[in-house]
Nucleic acid binder design. Structure first.
Lengths: 258, 258
DNA sequence: ATACTTATGTCCATATTATGAACACAAACA
DNA sequence: TGTTTGTGTTCATAATATGGACATAAGTAT
């Protein structure tokens, strides 16, 4: 055969994979070929013997991942693929789902709001609503921040089930970020218990001097913990009662997501 | 094994399909299992021997269709799948958005309606509402038609900005499709200007003898030109005033899309 | 209408591989 | 510390995927 089906990576051939790899290649090449995705067109492109191609096309068609136009004979991705794709992309837009709430929280509190998701041993900001005040956060979308010193990190960890949380705690890098960062694991566990008790996380100048943040976990539609939001306030704008107001606003908006 | 991998249809086993079918089953089951999509969870669900499961998981992972959380070991659909899904759903979502309008236009006009999107130097029909009349169009979803001789092509080209339109006009294959097809580029440019002036395109038996079509461009929610619809009428059913009625109905429905 | 070319589709001997019981090791738990 | 559970791999062999050869259908040129 002209084009050997091997995994894309350089890790050497894997048993039981050649037909699967070929099947996946078909799923990828057929939309690219468009109207040329006939048996002849696909065969010319991939160079496979016709029995091999027919067998795979028929299998994918029977499983609903491909459909064939009865008139011209072109293949297209089938409804089974489309269905799977829709469901998976729907779940993929946490940021879209939460964006409105972020905006409203920013409006009502007048402060900067972040949405963070876990990425390795850090939280990464995937959305941010800037405060209209002149003093602003230096953070940015895509920025990775520590879990142990930020309110998004604490809120996220506090919301996890215990075994998953412990896996993170064992691997965290307990570097001090400011003089106030908690770097003792036992003390940090107590801090997370306190976070759960009060219902929100606090970063009391532990990640950045002069900045206090309040964090609440965010869940997927199916209930799984997906990340957290934080509302950040410069200490000079902070006064008693502000924490409760910020948290009440944030909680109401997150609860309205469903 | 507990669950034999056979095609979903009743057509009997197909050679060379068992591993492909298993691979597709994994792609479908993993999002459903969510955080239970660990090796143990998948194995409990499918009942496959572990070497079989590992081989398929590793293959899908190497091809980028699955990714594994390094901490908890759960599998999720990988970026190769997400990429393929996004591209394939892009065209599909225009069809969904426009489908209701297509149906209403078909109902109110009593004629066949197509939705076409650009594909290379052609328009491809991605949706069709059949007329209830006995004389019907031979067109089908997936069919590629010329841009210069059809009302979907003219409507689409007329709506583009000039530089993009000129790119198309320089590369079109000015083949006559019927005796009435415009094959002179300069004359075709005048035709597109006239199309813009009147607000809709006309295929006056230029693509198929005896068939007159009226086309209007369709835009994405962000305003970009995405394709066009056409309403097709056999000449024998055509009378004065019908064009205006058809176009008014079509325009009203498209305007209501937002 | 006929001959030729091209495209579609299948058969089946055999080369190749997918299978899965058995095994090894790691992690969790009592 | 011992047991249980989970992760991961090996490899003899049963099972299957392969692809050259063939059959048939459709399209084209004469």
């Amino acid at each position: 055969m002209k084009e050997k089906a091997v995994p894309s990576s350089a890790q050497g051939p894997v048993q039981g994979s050649a037909a699967v790899v070929k099947g996946l290649q078909l799923l990828q090449i057929i939309p690219e070929l468009g109207e040329a995705a006939t048996v002849k067109g696909i065969q010319q492109h991939l160079g496979w013997p016709r029995p091999t191609l027919y067998r795979l096309l028929n299998t994918l068609e029977r499983e609903g991942f491909l459909e064939r136009n009865p008139l011209g004979g072109e293949y297209v991705l089938g409804r089974q693929f489309i269905h799977l794709a829709r469901r998976s992309l729907r779940a993929g837009s946490l940021q879209e789902r939460v964006r409105g709430a972020l905006r409203r929280i920013g409006c009502e509190t007048g402060e900067t709001v972040h949405l963070g998701v876990p990425s390795g041993m850090h939280m990464t900001y995937i959305d941010k609503v800037e405060s209209a005040e002149t003093v602003r956060m230096a953070s940015y979308i895509g920025m990775a921040v520590p879990m142990h010193s930020t309110s998004v990190g604490k809120a996220y960890l506090a919301a996890l089930d215990e075994s998953e949380r412990e896996r993170y705690l064992e691997q965290l890098d307990w570097e001090p970020v400011t003089a106030r960062t908690i770097v003792d694991a036992a003390r940090f566990r107590r801090e997370l218990r306190e976070t759960r008790r009060r219902g929100y996380a606090i970063d009391d100048e532990e990640n950045e001097a002069g900045i206090i943040c309040f964090g609440l976990a965010v869940t997927e539609v199916d209930g799984r913990v997906a990340g957290a939001i934080s509302v950040s306030v410069p200490r000079y704008r902070f006064d008693d009662g502000k924490a409760e107001r910020i948290v009440a606003i944030a909680r109401a908006e997150l609860d309205s997501l469903g």
